[in-house]
């Protein structure tokens, strides 16, 4: 059996099993984030003691971090386009831009969490704090994993380890990154913009 046959991993549907695996992960992650979002909705206004959502949530700052994450989805499709067209320079530039976007988002989240702690809201302060930090912290962890993955692809490319299936590896990573982005689209609306609803 040739080496190329080993690297294809096609299913009976003609789909690469690694890409299918990523979609199955994404489908199962919908359940995780759905459960965390509904937990937040149930408990956000149920706290007996403050701070409450309207006391701490900063909409302008979160809008900027949302914009950064949206633009990182744009930059990763440019990276994917680069590697699909054998343009490694384009791939490396845009994958780094995406990683910087992810790190910037994490910076905003760290700033937000620090501000909340200064305002007296911690993980165990009240049910709102617990639900909020669990939801946004889980999302932030996903972003951090994504940044590590992005940088590993960048360094793999530098060391010449992205071979025949390089585009597929980037495509699979991009799916994960876009999923993290669409989850944040929902969180931004439900958690932040619906603060007075």
């Amino acid at each position: 059996m040739s080496e190329a046959t080993h690297e294809q991993h096609h299913t009976s549907l003609g789909i690469d099993s690694r890409k299918l695996g990523m979609w199955i992960l994404i489908a199962s992650e919908c359940l995780l984030f759905g459960s965390l979002i509904v937990t937040y909705l149930i408990y956000r206004n149920a706290s007996v003691v403050g701070p409450h959502p309207r006391d701490v949530l900063d909409i302008p700052v979160t809008t900027i971090s949302t914009f950064v994450l949206l633009m990182s989805s744009f930059s990763i499709v440019l990276a994917l386009h680069g590697i699909q067209h054998n343009n490694l320079r384009q791939f490396r530039v845009w994958i780094l831009v995406t990683a910087v976007g992810g790190l910037t988002f994490l910076g905003f989240q760290t700033y937000e969490f620090t501000e909340f702690v200064h305002k007296g809201l911690g993980l165990t302060t009240n049910v709102f704090g617990g639900a909020f930090f669990m939801l946004t912290g889980t999302h932030g962890t996903h972003v951090a994993v994504g940044v590590i993955w992005l940088l590993s692809l960048y360094f793999s490319s530098i060391r010449g380890r992205l071979k025949e299936d390089g585009a597929l590896k980037v495509d699979t990573m991009a799916l994960y990154w876009h999923f993290v982005d669409v989850v944040w689209i929902v969180i931004f609306t439900v958690v932040y913009l619906f603060v007075f609803v």
Binding site: I15, A27, F33, G34, H178
Partner: peptide, 26 residues
């Protein structure tokens, strides 16, 4: 961006299944 419009329909079905199950739980 996730290319669901162009990729195999099985991917769309998987995502819709995940979203539907999550909506039911919610």
């Amino acid at each position: 961006y996730m290319h669901l419009k162009f990729d195999h329909k099985a991917f769309t079905r998987l995502l819709v299944l995940g979203i539907m199950l999550a909506t039911c739980i919610m």
